[in-house]
Each structure stands twice: as structure tokens, then as C-alpha cells.
Design a protein around this nucleic acid. Structure first.
Length: 575
DNA sequence: GCCGTTTTCGGCCCGACTGTTTTCAGTCG
């Protein structure tokens, strides 16, 4: 059997949808697009799903039916798909590559191929430079110019930026717009408001009676390198970083409906619209309407209420069951952004952190923390100057000194980020581990062990009765490193049996556990911690990303151990 | 092609903007 990645399967299915779109086939393109997204978002590999459950298991995936399941089967078995090959024969182009150029859809790509023989991005570049694109029917000088610009940006593009990279900029833009006198309200919607791990582009919503000056101000912001659209109610710009920012201006009576529409997710919105439709109403970005009469739309709360459901927090809007719960008034009460009492993973200048224990303590007090754990690396991570049994005892003396100096405002817990060795044993002896307040363990080596071995290794580590928390459980670095191959269900099961806490690492390129694992832990009754993994004082502010991740996994306050005050929190640890 | 407390057949979200058009197709979200 061929080993084919989910991404590859998703790409081929998506391409089928686009080829059908070229032909003008109705509805099927959406079905393929949905199926491709479903495969791309899967937690497990499609090959494994097929290996363990066959076609039936594939059909269980929402958005995949009998026909696409068979196609996936063929891909897994042969690495090829005849149907895809046949479609590609008609328009043999680098579809995935060309689709990355902004403004180029399937229909335009087909035309460029048929009229100019454009197959690749390089072909397109040559044709555009020679002025051949502008001569095509329905194309023109501007279309050609836009294609050239799209090509330029494609060369610089680096994929979706991290939430942590975009949020500070988004907040600056929001503040700046708030300062405009024509602006009554401003909010950033879209995936940012849902706190997705990475951000496609920014969707800004403004309430104003005079949109003109707001639009003019927006398109002339200093970061703007290109104005993509500049209309009365909608404008779009590209920033020097490559980020697209859309601005919509609506009247106050449509604010809630527009906010809902722009926040998404698309699937959540479609489900709401279908609900409206079922009642004989219509939902769009201007409101909920019965005929011409507006039933709701001024606020999101009103919109959900009139639809007969509870308000759904943006982090939950993925159409993964939240709508049903909202109708039954059974939504979880998510952990709040002010609910944490402390931070349980901090690296200091004793290893690879930048700041001293004392300066971290002061910074934590400023942020209102009640406790922090000092969790430096251990000796196997020699490059960080990892602590051995002797050196960590010296650190305890320093912690005691700082504790005495700062008094009762903050408890500094003695901790570790102890290395899990290749065989699942730990990098500090049990006697030392037993004396720690908080014992975290983590994998920093042998990322490529076979799944079974990796799983066994981690399970052995967390079965150690001294171990309290498994740090960054899957080891991924978003956009840089895949998670190691590990059976998370088995880890969660063992964590439940042993009372081990799993971490939501809030560092923006980790966010590890990810939302669906958080969900599984909540269901299993496994407790979680939210920690920054700070390597400097500034990183202490990352907690909000971890809280967002917890909320995206439907975690309540009680699921997270460091929402508790010190005494209650310590009772939840193993000893 | 997918899906089902209306349904295994007959539906499938909806609007803004651009660029090319003189009324609309394509793309995007």
C-alpha cells in the first residue's frame, strides 16, 4: 500500500473540484472542496483510517461519501487517481501553483491555457510580461497588471502567519481606527477573533454613518503597499508584510449581523443561514429578515436569541457541534481570559531563558499571578546548560532567597522541564524529582521514533509517580516541524489513569496541545495546564494564546488546573 | 457529490467589488 499524506489527498480532491468548476459543473465543485478540507483537517492519516476501517471508515468522515471514499481508496492503493488524471489531460496545468496567484480562479486559468498555452506559473509570467494576457477577451491591462503583482507577492509569500505575529499589528490597526471621529465602533473579526493558530487575513468591521473618510484613511495607512479594492462599504489592502486586510463599514443596526458574518467560520455561518431559511427567514450580513422586516442584527446576542439559541463564543464557531448545544442551551461555559492564577512553565537564565528568577518573580507579580513554577531544562540538553541533580539543588537555594525577599505576594514553585530520554526514563533521579513542587517532563530528542515506540516512551515517562505534567505533548512547531508520531488517544488514556496533567503550551508557534486534543482531554476528564513556556519576561504575556486554545477546545475553568488558587492547585498534583 | 427531526430525492448561503463590460462573469470570503 502506498503511503500518501493527507495533504496530498486533499490537494488532488481539491483539484478535481476546480477542474469541475472550469467545466461549469454545478454543485460538485463545492462537494469536492468540502471533502478536501475535511481530509486536510483530519487528526489521523487517511491511510491509517482506511487500513483499519476500509471504505466504511472513510465514509464516516463528514463531507466524504461513497464516491469520494472510493477515490481516496484508489489514491491510497495506487498513488494515482484515474479520474483526476483524465480531468488533468483536458487542462494540463499546474493548478495548485497557479491558484496561489490572487484573483486567478479556475475559469481564468482555463482560458489562459486554451488561448495562450499557459501551464505553469513561469509560463504565466512570460505571457504577462509580453503583454499577451491583456489582449485576451475579458482580460485587459489591469488584469494583466494584477497578475504581475500577484506573481511578485507569490515569490515573497511564506504561508499563513502565526496568530502571535498578527495580533499585535491587528490591535494597532484597531486602535488607530478607533481614533477616527467618523468611527462609532471598530472590531477585528475573522479568524483572528476566533483565535485560530494562523491567520489568513484580517477582517475589520466598522460602524459609521460616514464611511467615505474612514475608507480613505484605511487605504492610506502607512503599512499599505497596495489597494486591492476601495469601495463605499468595502475596501481591501495588502500590507508590506503580505497580509491582506479587509474593511467593511455597516450601519449600527447591522453591526451584529455583519460581525457574525465576518467572524465565521464559513461552516458556522452556513449552518446559521440554513436555520434561518428553515424558518422562512433570510440571514445576511445586514441582518436577519422576514421579508423586508429586520428581526435582528444590531447585536450578535440578539441574532442568536431570535434564532432560538444561546450565544456562541467566537472560539467555538466551527460547526463542530456547537450549534446543536446552543439550541439545547447546553454550551460549555468556557474558561475566561482572566481566570488563570499562575504560570507553570518558565525557563530562566539558569538554562536557555534570558531573565533571572527574581526578575520573573517581579514581572509575575505585576501581571497579577499568584504563583509561578521555575522549570529549567535538565542535563541532557547540554546546549542549554541543563541542570543536573547537584545544580538544581543550588537553584532551590536561590528560589528560597527570592521567595523570602518578595514575601507572600507570589509563590515560586520549584519545578523542572525534565527531559524524557529515548527509552522513556527521565533525566533526573527519582529522589530529586520527588522533592520538586511541580515536575514537568518533555520530549526534546528522537522526534522520529516509530509511532509505537514514541508512544511507549512517553507513557513510561508519565507513569512515573513523580511526574505531574507532560509539557508540549506533541512537539510540533507550527509551519516548521510536524508533531512527532504518537498515539494521543493512548497518552490521554494513560494520563487519566495516572492523574497526569497535559499542557497547553501557549507559545505562539507551539500551541500544543491543539484544539481537538484539548477537546478529547475534556471529554476524558484529563486535567490541563496552560503555560507560556516563557524564555523571557515578555513571553509571560503569551498566556492569552493558551487560554484561547483551551477555549477552542471547549475547556471550562474547572478543566484547567492553574485556574485554582495555590492550595487547591497543589492538591491536584500527584503527591 | 453530499446529505437527511421535512427528505434516499431534490435541494445545495449570499453579497461586494473589479474589470470588463453596456448587463455581467469571475473571484473572494
Amino acid at each position: 500500500m502506498k503511503r500518501i499524506s493527507n495533504q496530498e489527498v486533499a490537494r488532488i480532491i481539491a483539484e478535481i473540484g476546480e477542474y469541475l468548476d472550469m467545466e461549469g459543473v454545478p454543485f460538485k465543485p463545492r462537494a469536492y472542496e468540502k471533502a478536501a478540507k475535511a481530509v486536510g483537517d483530519l487528526d489521523k492519516s487517511v491511510s491509517e483510517i482506511y487500513a483499519s476501517g476500509g471504505l466504511k471508515a472513510l465514509e464516516q468522515i463528514p463531507g466524504i461519501g461513497a464516491s469520494i471514499a472510493k477515490k481516496i481508496e484508489e489514491l491510497i492503493k495506487t498513488g494515482h487517481l484515474k479520474y483526476h488524471d483524465e480531468l488533468k489531460k483536458k487542462v494540463p496545468v499546474d493548478l495548485s501553483g497557479l491558484r496561489k496567484i490572487e484573483g486567478l480562479g479556475p475559469k481564468s486559468i482555463k482560458k489562459l491555457y486554451e488561448e495562450l498555452g499557459v501551464k505553469t506559473v513561469a509560463d504565466l509570467e512570460r505571457a504577462a510580461k509580453a503583454g499577451r494576457v491583456a489582449k485576451l477577451e475579458h482580460f485587459g491591462a489591469k488584469s494583466e497588471e494584477n497578475i504581475k503583482k500577484g506573481l511578485e507577492f507569490l515569490k515573497k509569500a511564506t504561508g499563513r502567519p502565526l496568530l502571535g505575529a498578527v495580533l499585535p499589528l491587528a490591535r494597532r490597526i484597531e486602535e488607530r481606527l478607533r481614533g477616527q471621529k467618523e468611527v462609532e465602533k471598530v472590531i477585528i473579526a475573522g479568524s483572528l477573533r476566533r483565535w485560530k493558530e494562523t491567520i489568513g487575513d484580517l477582517d475589520v468591521l466598522v460602524v459609521s454613518k460616514k464611511p467615505g473618510p474612514v475608507m480613505d484613511f484605511f487605504v492610506s495607512m502607512p503599512e499599505v503597499v497596495r489597494v486591492v479594492a476601495h469601495g463605499e462599504t468595502k475596501s481591501a489592502v495588502k500590507l508590506e508584510s503580505g497580509l491582506n486586510v479587509d474593511l467593511r463599514v455597516v450601519p449600527a443596526e447591522s453591526y451584529g449581523a455583519a460581525l457574525n458574518y465576518l467572524t465565521g467560520s464559513k461552516d458556522h455561518n452556513v449552518a446559521l443561514r440554513e436555520m434561518a431559511l428553515a424558518k422562512g427567514w433570510k440571514l445576511n450580513e445586514y441582518g436577519l429578515f422576514k421579508g423586508k422586516k429586520q428581526l435582528a442584527g444590531r447585536t450578535e446576542e440578539e441574532l442568536y436569541a431570535v434564532l432560538g439559541m444561546d450565544y456562541v463564543e467566537p472560539e467555538m464557531r466551527e460547526n463542530t457541534g456547537e450549534i446543536e448545544l446552543a439550541k439545547k442551551h447546553k454550551l460549555p461555559k468556557l474558561i475566561g481570559y482572566d481566570d488563570l492564577q499562575g504560570d507553570l512553565q518558565i525557563q530562566t537564565d539558569w538554562t536557555d531563558g534570558a531573565d533571572t528568577i527574581e526578575s520573573y518573580a517581579k514581572a509575575a507579580i505585576e501581571r497579577g499571578h499568584k504563583y509561578i513554577a521555575i522549570t529549567d531544562h535538565t542535563k541532557r540538553l547540554a546546549m542549554t546548560g541543563g541542570l543536573d541533580e547537584k545544580k538544581i539543588r543550588k537553584q532551590w537555594v536561590e528560589i528560597d532567597r527570592v521567595q523570602k525577599k518578595i514575601g507572600a505576594k507570589l509563590k515560586i514553585l520549584k519545578g523542572t522541564e525534565c527531559d524524557i530520554l529515548k527509552d522513556g526514563s527521565l533525566d533526573l533521579d527519582d529522589e530529586t524529582l520527588a522533592r520538586l513542587d511541580v515536575c514537568g517532563v518533555a520530549v526534546h530528542s528522537h522526534f522520529d521514533l516509530p509511532r509505537e515506540e514514541q508512544t511507549k516512551r512517553i507513557i513510561r515517562a508519565i507513569k512515573n509517580p513523580n511526574v505531574d505534567i507532560l509539557f508540549h505533548p506533541t512537539g510540533r512547531l507550527i509551519g516548521k516541524r510536524e508533531p512527532y508520531d504518537v498515539d494521543m488517544d493512548a497518552i490521554i488514556k494513560t494520563a487519566k489513569e495516572t492523574g497526569t496533567i497535559l499542557e497547553i503550551d501557549a507559545f505562539p508557534d507551539r500551541l500544543d496541545l491543539k484544539d481537538e486534543h484539548v477537546k478529547k482531554c475534556v471529554v476524558a476528564g484529563v486535567k490541563l495546564s496552560i503555560d507560556t513556556d516563557a524564555h523571557s519576561i515578555a513571553h509571560l504575556d503569551f498566556l492569552e494564546y493558551g487560554i484561547a486554545q483551551a477555549r477552542r477546545g471547549w475547556a471550562e475553568k474547572s478543566d484547567i488546573i492553574n485556574t485554582r488558587l495555590l492550595e487547591a492547585f497543589l492538591k491536584l498534583l500527584k503527591k
